[in-house]
Design a protein around this nucleic acid. Sequence first.
DNA 1: ATTGACTTTGACGTAAAAGTCAAATTTTCA
DNA 2: TGAAAATTTGACTTTTACGTCAAAGTCAAT
Lengths: 128, 128
Amino acid sequence: MNKYYTITELTREFGVSTRTLRFYEDEGLIHPERRGRTRLFRSADRRLIMEILRGRRIGFTIAEIREIIQVYRDPPGEAGQLRLLMKRVEEKREELNQKRKDIEETLEELGNVEEACLTRLAEIGVGT
Amino acid sequence: MNKYYTITELTREFGVSTRTLRFYEDEGLIHPERRGRTRLFRSADRRLIMEILRGRRIGFTIAEIREIIQVYRDPPGEAGQLRLLMKRVEEKREELNQKRKDIEETLEELGNVEEACLTRLAEIGVGT
DNA sequence: ATTGACTTTGACGTAAAAGTCAAATTTTCA
DNA sequence: TGAAAATTTGACTTTTACGTCAAAGTCAAT
């Protein structure tokens, strides 16, 4: 156990470039260890990268992703900050709910397009 | 009926800038009429803008949005193209399903964060 | 007729998120 | 140990989706 991942193992697994992972390190999102100058990724880093990429897929900026990571790393202790965080969470939640709705609507439209295609195909050549 | 919308009416309604709408026109997404040089938007344009912005919210690029619009404007008639389109639709569908999953997972995490905040707030100051 | 609000065009600028390239190291392993 | 393969750093470039002027035109109302 306690395996190390090389940078290219991870780039292959996740379909990103080394530049991307180095960029995320420069931006303070990940902190792989070093042996000499070479980066060594542990599975905690790997999981973090998975979360970063998930954030990326749903349109979070690097700054937003960093913010989320930092909240996880050290949650605020003071009441005012906690309330502020909750407000921000609420905003994000609304944004994501909107996005989900947008996606569902678009999925429906894609369904219609597909159906129209099938109908049209059936009309034209009644084969495969 | 058959009302015209001015550009600023629409920018106010949708919270975008005039630059954005002009940009969408330059990119061939919308084609408002003109009286002289002034743009006149009909409700068809308005609806189209709504769809463009929905596409934008879920992370579609201008090129993708344009492609979708064009498919709606003149659907392909030839079998090969229809099949190609269906393949592209299928890809989009998978992408959106992934994105929806990402969003749902993130919403759950936000729920956890919120709960943690509430717990912590209760621990600290047993007030509002 | 003039003020003020709105609009257009065109050119240039910018921020985010990497991509690309070159040169220097470092590691691997035959 | 020596060559090939992988990695790092740093600088520069690119793409997307607009933002930001500036200058000029338009239109309605006073």
